[in-house]
Design a binder for these strands. Sequence first.
DNA 1: TATTTATTCTACCGATTTAGTAGATTATTG
DNA 2: CAATAATCTACTAAATCGGTAGAATAAATA
Lengths: 139, 139
Amino acid sequence: MLSKKTKYAFHALTYLGKQEARKPVLISEISEKTKVPKKFLEAILLDLRKAGMLTSKMGKGGGYYLRMDPEEIKLAEVIRMFNGPIALLPCVSLNYYEPCDECVDEETCGLHAIMLEVRDETLKIVANKTLKDILSAEG
Amino acid sequence: MLSKKTKYAFHALTYLGKQEARKPVLISEISEKTKVPKKFLEAILLDLRKAGMLTSKMGKGGGYYLRMDPEEIKLAEVIRMFNGPIALLPCVSLNYYEPCDECVDEETCGLHAIMLEVRDETLKIVANKTLKDILSAEG
DNA sequence: TATTTATTCTACCGATTTAGTAGATTATTG
DNA sequence: CAATAATCTACTAAATCGGTAGAATAAATA
């Protein structure tokens, strides 16, 4: 399951994606409309900005807005950022690889082989879906 | 990511699946061979038995052995048992459904729609893979 | 330049989950 | 009855999750 933080990130991105122009939206507006706790949302938006998906402006007239195009923002990237690896086991993770303590040899580990397959199939799904798909699905 | 408990469950099932006859294997043997902490393994085996995947015998000559055929033991079932829902959000879970607090209407929620798709695709993978696939992949 | 606006940074907090361990109990075999 | 081996109850330490408080910094404007 995705953490609330991850879900909140998607809600925030979706809200910003629905804005016609790319002009700053206040954290408090996003918080009210998406019902994400404001202080919690701050940290999320900051992370999204650091990842290059959003831009921010401080001071009056400031706020957050999309920096990337919706079709560039992949579900997989957002999930990795807030939820961690897509893979089900560290030993088959592309971005967070770690060997298993108990495993003598990955080559002959049946679980490893199957989890590799699962990872590849899962990536096909979440790496090809983007914020644009969420926006299109929205009423 | 899967919890260690879930991974351990797969290791234990795999070890029992490699046994030719269906005769009892000691917890301590499974623990030593799979390197899963014995006391932790006890709880896992108990859950697998309660789910009908294993049978146990107490006393001398006792132990655990497979009750179901390897092709009947689906990855999805093991994951649900030890790791929880397959779906990424409670609002798209078949077995653990819960509505979102912030969601006014699931019908028009784009995230909901996309996560439904992701769940369906994911299920196609993990509900069709079984212990037999793990065993076949093993040396 | 002072004030207001609004993001950013640092630091905390309670509750839950994870990954275990210890030890008594119950069932089976011989 | 003695030995064996699963079962049950009850802890525990550490990490993660979800969230809050408040000070610091940056930008606009009067």
